[in-house]
Amino acid sequence: MFSSFMTNAWIVGTLVALLAGATGFFVVLRGSSFAAHAVPNGAFAGAAGATLVGVAPLWGLVSFAVVAALGIGASRRHRSDVATAMALVLMLALGAAFLSLSAAYEPQVQALLFGEILGVASSSITTVVLIGLVCAAALAVMFRPLIFNAAAPDLSAARGLNPTLLEMGFMLTLALGSALTVPVVGALLSFSLTVGPPAAARLLTRRPSTALVGSMALSVMTLWVSIALSYATNLPVGFFVGTLSAILYIAVRAATQLSARRA
Protein backbone atom coordinates (compact mmCIF):
# COMPACT_ATOMS: atom_id res chain seq x y z
CA MET A 1 0.00 0.00 0.00
CA PHE A 2 2.98 2.30 0.49
CA SER A 3 5.09 0.93 -2.34
CA SER A 4 6.93 3.32 -4.60
CA PHE A 5 4.20 3.77 -7.22
CA MET A 6 1.75 4.43 -4.44
CA THR A 7 3.98 7.12 -2.92
CA ASN A 8 3.06 9.53 -5.67
CA ALA A 9 -0.61 8.83 -5.18
CA TRP A 10 -0.33 9.62 -1.47
CA ILE A 11 1.66 12.83 -2.00
CA VAL A 12 -0.37 14.23 -4.88
CA GLY A 13 -3.62 13.10 -3.29
CA THR A 14 -2.80 14.87 -0.05
CA LEU A 15 -1.92 18.11 -1.83
CA VAL A 16 -5.09 17.95 -3.89
CA ALA A 17 -7.21 17.27 -0.82
CA LEU A 18 -5.64 20.18 1.07
CA LEU A 19 -6.42 22.52 -1.79
CA ALA A 20 -9.95 21.17 -2.26
CA GLY A 21 -10.61 21.60 1.45
CA ALA A 22 -9.39 25.20 1.42
CA THR A 23 -11.28 26.17 -1.73
CA GLY A 24 -14.32 24.30 -0.49
CA PHE A 25 -14.47 26.35 2.69
CA PHE A 26 -15.13 29.42 0.57
CA VAL A 27 -17.38 27.58 -1.88
CA VAL A 28 -19.72 26.53 0.92
CA LEU A 29 -19.47 29.93 2.59
CA ARG A 30 -20.44 31.72 -0.61
CA GLY A 31 -23.07 29.20 -1.63
CA SER A 32 -21.41 28.59 -4.97
CA SER A 33 -21.55 24.79 -5.06
CA PHE A 34 -23.06 24.82 -8.52
CA ALA A 35 -20.21 26.87 -9.95
CA ALA A 36 -17.75 24.64 -8.11
CA HIS A 37 -19.39 21.71 -9.86
CA ALA A 38 -19.41 23.34 -13.29
CA VAL A 39 -15.84 24.64 -13.45
CA PRO A 40 -14.14 21.22 -13.20
CA ASN A 41 -16.25 20.13 -16.15
CA GLY A 42 -14.59 22.88 -18.13
CA ALA A 43 -11.33 21.27 -17.17
CA PHE A 44 -12.70 17.93 -18.38
CA ALA A 45 -13.55 19.38 -21.79
CA GLY A 46 -10.12 20.95 -21.92
CA ALA A 47 -8.36 17.70 -21.17
CA ALA A 48 -10.44 15.91 -23.80
CA GLY A 49 -9.69 18.66 -26.33
CA ALA A 50 -5.99 18.46 -25.58
CA THR A 51 -6.08 14.70 -26.21
CA LEU A 52 -7.75 15.32 -29.56
CA VAL A 53 -5.31 18.00 -30.70
CA GLY A 54 -2.34 16.30 -29.13
CA VAL A 55 -1.01 18.95 -26.75
CA ALA A 56 -0.16 18.57 -23.09
CA PRO A 57 -3.38 18.07 -21.10
CA LEU A 58 -2.42 20.73 -18.56
CA TRP A 59 -2.90 23.49 -21.12
CA GLY A 60 -6.34 22.24 -22.03
CA LEU A 61 -7.27 21.81 -18.38
CA VAL A 62 -6.23 25.31 -17.39
CA SER A 63 -7.55 27.21 -20.41
CA PHE A 64 -10.99 25.59 -20.50
CA ALA A 65 -11.47 25.81 -16.76
CA VAL A 66 -10.56 29.49 -16.87
CA VAL A 67 -12.99 30.15 -19.73
CA ALA A 68 -15.79 28.36 -17.88
CA ALA A 69 -15.01 30.22 -14.65
CA LEU A 70 -14.94 33.63 -16.30
CA GLY A 71 -18.18 32.90 -18.15
CA ILE A 72 -19.94 31.95 -14.95
CA GLY A 73 -18.38 34.79 -12.95
CA ALA A 74 -19.34 37.41 -15.52
CA SER A 75 -23.01 36.46 -15.49
CA ARG A 76 -23.31 35.97 -11.77
CA ARG A 77 -25.48 38.99 -11.23
CA HIS A 78 -28.79 37.78 -12.65
CA ARG A 79 -30.04 34.21 -12.95
CA SER A 80 -26.58 32.92 -12.21
CA ASP A 81 -27.85 29.38 -11.90
CA VAL A 82 -29.03 29.31 -15.52
CA ALA A 83 -25.69 30.60 -16.77
CA THR A 84 -23.87 28.07 -14.63
CA ALA A 85 -26.06 25.24 -15.89
CA MET A 86 -25.53 26.22 -19.52
CA ALA A 87 -21.76 26.61 -19.10
CA LEU A 88 -21.72 23.21 -17.45
CA VAL A 89 -23.60 21.32 -20.14
CA LEU A 90 -21.76 23.09 -22.94
CA MET A 91 -18.42 22.07 -21.47
CA LEU A 92 -19.55 18.48 -20.90
CA ALA A 93 -20.93 18.26 -24.43
CA LEU A 94 -17.71 19.64 -25.87
CA GLY A 95 -15.80 17.08 -23.85
CA ALA A 96 -18.04 14.31 -25.15
CA ALA A 97 -17.60 15.47 -28.74
CA PHE A 98 -13.81 15.71 -28.42
CA LEU A 99 -13.67 12.24 -26.94
CA SER A 100 -15.84 10.65 -29.59
CA LEU A 101 -13.88 12.39 -32.37
CA SER A 102 -10.59 11.22 -30.97
CA ALA A 103 -12.03 7.75 -30.31
CA ALA A 104 -10.67 7.71 -26.78
CA TYR A 105 -10.81 4.46 -24.91
CA GLU A 106 -13.40 3.98 -22.27
CA PRO A 107 -10.89 3.93 -19.39
CA GLN A 108 -9.60 7.31 -20.56
CA VAL A 109 -13.06 8.82 -20.41
CA GLN A 110 -13.63 7.35 -16.99
CA ALA A 111 -10.27 8.59 -15.78
CA LEU A 112 -11.07 12.15 -16.79
CA LEU A 113 -14.48 12.07 -15.20
CA PHE A 114 -13.83 9.94 -12.17
CA GLY A 115 -10.09 10.27 -11.68
CA GLU A 116 -7.08 8.03 -11.81
CA ILE A 117 -5.11 8.74 -8.71
CA LEU A 118 -2.97 5.63 -8.94
CA GLY A 119 -1.74 6.66 -12.34
CA VAL A 120 -0.26 9.97 -11.26
CA ALA A 121 3.24 10.30 -12.64
CA SER A 122 6.05 11.58 -10.45
CA SER A 123 6.75 14.36 -12.91
CA SER A 124 3.43 15.98 -12.14
CA ILE A 125 4.22 16.52 -8.46
CA THR A 126 6.15 19.71 -9.22
CA THR A 127 3.24 21.07 -11.24
CA VAL A 128 0.78 20.16 -8.51
CA VAL A 129 2.89 21.88 -5.88
CA LEU A 130 3.33 25.01 -8.01
CA ILE A 131 -0.35 25.42 -8.91
CA GLY A 132 -1.33 24.56 -5.36
CA LEU A 133 0.91 27.28 -3.99
CA VAL A 134 -0.50 29.88 -6.38
CA CYS A 135 -4.06 28.97 -5.37
CA ALA A 136 -3.21 28.99 -1.68
CA ALA A 137 -1.61 32.43 -2.00
CA ALA A 138 -4.64 33.77 -3.89
CA LEU A 139 -7.03 32.44 -1.23
CA ALA A 140 -4.89 33.91 1.54
CA VAL A 141 -4.92 37.34 -0.08
CA MET A 142 -8.71 37.24 -0.54
CA PHE A 143 -9.42 35.58 2.84
CA ARG A 144 -11.12 38.45 4.70
CA PRO A 145 -12.88 40.08 1.71
CA LEU A 146 -14.32 36.68 0.71
CA ILE A 147 -15.67 36.08 4.21
CA PHE A 148 -16.99 39.62 4.56
CA ASN A 149 -18.66 39.58 1.15
CA ALA A 150 -20.22 36.18 1.80
CA ALA A 151 -21.51 37.06 5.26
CA ALA A 152 -22.92 40.50 4.42
CA PRO A 153 -22.76 41.54 0.75
CA ASP A 154 -24.40 44.96 1.30
CA LEU A 155 -22.07 45.96 4.08
CA SER A 156 -18.99 44.90 2.17
CA ALA A 157 -20.10 46.90 -0.86
CA ALA A 158 -20.67 49.92 1.36
CA ARG A 159 -17.11 49.52 2.60
CA GLY A 160 -15.86 49.71 -0.97
CA LEU A 161 -15.35 46.04 -1.86
CA ASN A 162 -15.92 45.41 -5.55
CA PRO A 163 -18.07 42.25 -5.65
CA THR A 164 -17.44 41.52 -9.35
CA LEU A 165 -13.69 41.73 -8.95
CA LEU A 166 -13.84 39.48 -5.91
CA GLU A 167 -16.06 36.95 -7.67
CA MET A 168 -13.75 36.86 -10.67
CA GLY A 169 -10.72 36.40 -8.46
CA PHE A 170 -12.39 33.55 -6.64
CA MET A 171 -13.63 31.85 -9.82
CA LEU A 172 -10.16 32.03 -11.34
CA THR A 173 -8.70 30.40 -8.26
CA LEU A 174 -11.38 27.75 -8.49
CA ALA A 175 -10.48 27.16 -12.16
CA LEU A 176 -6.78 26.82 -11.45
CA GLY A 177 -7.52 24.48 -8.58
CA SER A 178 -9.80 22.37 -10.79
CA ALA A 179 -7.09 22.01 -13.40
CA LEU A 180 -5.10 20.40 -10.66
CA THR A 181 -7.78 18.22 -9.08
CA VAL A 182 -9.43 16.92 -12.27
CA PRO A 183 -6.62 14.61 -13.38
CA VAL A 184 -6.39 13.18 -9.87
CA VAL A 185 -9.96 12.69 -8.68
CA GLY A 186 -11.76 13.48 -11.94
CA ALA A 187 -14.12 16.25 -13.04
CA LEU A 188 -17.20 14.88 -11.36
CA LEU A 189 -15.54 14.03 -8.08
CA SER A 190 -13.22 16.96 -7.49
CA PHE A 191 -16.51 18.50 -6.50
CA SER A 192 -17.25 15.98 -3.73
CA LEU A 193 -14.15 16.97 -1.78
CA THR A 194 -15.05 20.61 -2.28
CA VAL A 195 -18.45 20.41 -0.62
CA GLY A 196 -18.78 17.50 1.83
CA PRO A 197 -15.82 18.05 4.18
CA PRO A 198 -16.09 21.87 4.28
CA ALA A 199 -19.83 21.72 4.94
CA ALA A 200 -19.17 19.30 7.79
CA ALA A 201 -16.32 21.40 9.20
CA ARG A 202 -18.32 24.56 9.49
CA LEU A 203 -20.96 22.87 11.58
CA LEU A 204 -18.29 22.02 14.14
CA THR A 205 -16.90 25.46 14.87
CA ARG A 206 -17.78 29.13 15.04
CA ARG A 207 -14.31 30.41 14.20
CA PRO A 208 -13.55 31.04 10.53
CA SER A 209 -9.89 30.04 10.80
CA THR A 210 -10.72 26.82 12.65
CA ALA A 211 -13.40 26.03 10.07
CA LEU A 212 -10.86 26.49 7.27
CA VAL A 213 -8.24 24.27 8.90
CA GLY A 214 -10.89 21.72 9.87
CA SER A 215 -12.18 21.64 6.33
CA MET A 216 -8.70 20.91 4.98
CA ALA A 217 -8.12 18.24 7.62
CA LEU A 218 -11.44 16.47 6.96
CA SER A 219 -10.80 16.62 3.24
CA VAL A 220 -7.37 15.01 3.59
CA MET A 221 -8.77 12.35 5.90
CA THR A 222 -11.54 11.56 3.43
CA LEU A 223 -9.06 11.13 0.61
CA TRP A 224 -6.62 9.04 2.67
CA VAL A 225 -9.33 6.65 3.79
CA SER A 226 -10.60 6.49 0.20
CA ILE A 227 -7.19 5.61 -1.22
CA ALA A 228 -6.67 2.96 1.44
CA LEU A 229 -10.10 1.43 0.85
CA SER A 230 -9.63 1.57 -2.88
CA TYR A 231 -6.30 -0.21 -2.55
CA ALA A 232 -7.81 -2.86 -0.34
CA THR A 233 -10.95 -3.51 -2.37
CA ASN A 234 -9.76 -2.71 -5.89
CA LEU A 235 -12.78 -0.47 -6.42
CA PRO A 236 -12.39 3.05 -7.87
CA VAL A 237 -11.16 5.80 -5.53
CA GLY A 238 -13.90 8.10 -6.79
CA PHE A 239 -16.58 5.84 -5.37
CA PHE A 240 -15.14 6.15 -1.87
CA VAL A 241 -14.43 9.88 -2.17
CA GLY A 242 -17.99 10.62 -3.25
CA THR A 243 -19.81 8.45 -0.75
CA LEU A 244 -17.50 9.10 2.22
CA SER A 245 -17.81 12.89 1.75
CA ALA A 246 -21.58 12.61 1.82
CA ILE A 247 -21.59 10.25 4.80
CA LEU A 248 -19.23 12.59 6.66
CA TYR A 249 -21.50 15.58 6.19
CA ILE A 250 -24.69 13.72 7.06
CA ALA A 251 -23.11 12.18 10.17
CA VAL A 252 -21.76 15.51 11.44
CA ARG A 253 -25.06 17.20 10.79
CA ALA A 254 -27.00 14.54 12.62
CA ALA A 255 -24.55 14.68 15.55
CA THR A 256 -24.68 18.48 15.88
CA GLN A 257 -28.46 18.46 15.67
CA LEU A 258 -28.65 15.80 18.35
CA SER A 259 -26.33 17.66 20.70
CA ALA A 260 -28.19 20.92 20.06
CA ARG A 261 -31.45 19.26 20.97
CA ARG A 262 -29.95 17.84 24.16
CA ALA A 263 -28.46 21.20 25.20
Binding site: F114, L189, F191, S192, V195, G238, F239, S245, A246, I247
Partner: peptide, 19 residues
Protein backbone atom coordinates in the same frame (compact mmCIF):
# COMPACT_ATOMS: atom_id res chain seq x y z
CA UNK B 1 -27.08 24.49 -1.90
CA UNK B 2 -25.02 22.26 0.37
CA UNK B 3 -27.64 19.50 0.59
CA UNK B 4 -27.90 19.40 -3.19
CA UNK B 5 -24.13 19.30 -3.50
CA UNK B 6 -23.80 16.45 -1.05
CA UNK B 7 -26.39 14.31 -2.85
CA UNK B 8 -24.72 15.12 -6.16
CA UNK B 9 -21.31 14.14 -4.82
CA UNK B 10 -22.56 10.83 -3.44
CA UNK B 11 -24.32 10.08 -6.73
CA UNK B 12 -21.19 10.65 -8.79
CA UNK B 13 -19.34 8.36 -6.40
CA UNK B 14 -21.88 5.61 -7.06
CA UNK B 15 -21.64 6.26 -10.80
CA UNK B 16 -17.89 5.79 -10.61
CA UNK B 17 -18.42 2.45 -8.95
CA UNK B 18 -21.12 1.20 -11.31
CA UNK B 19 -19.36 2.29 -14.48
Amino acid sequence: DVATGVVLGAATGLSALFL
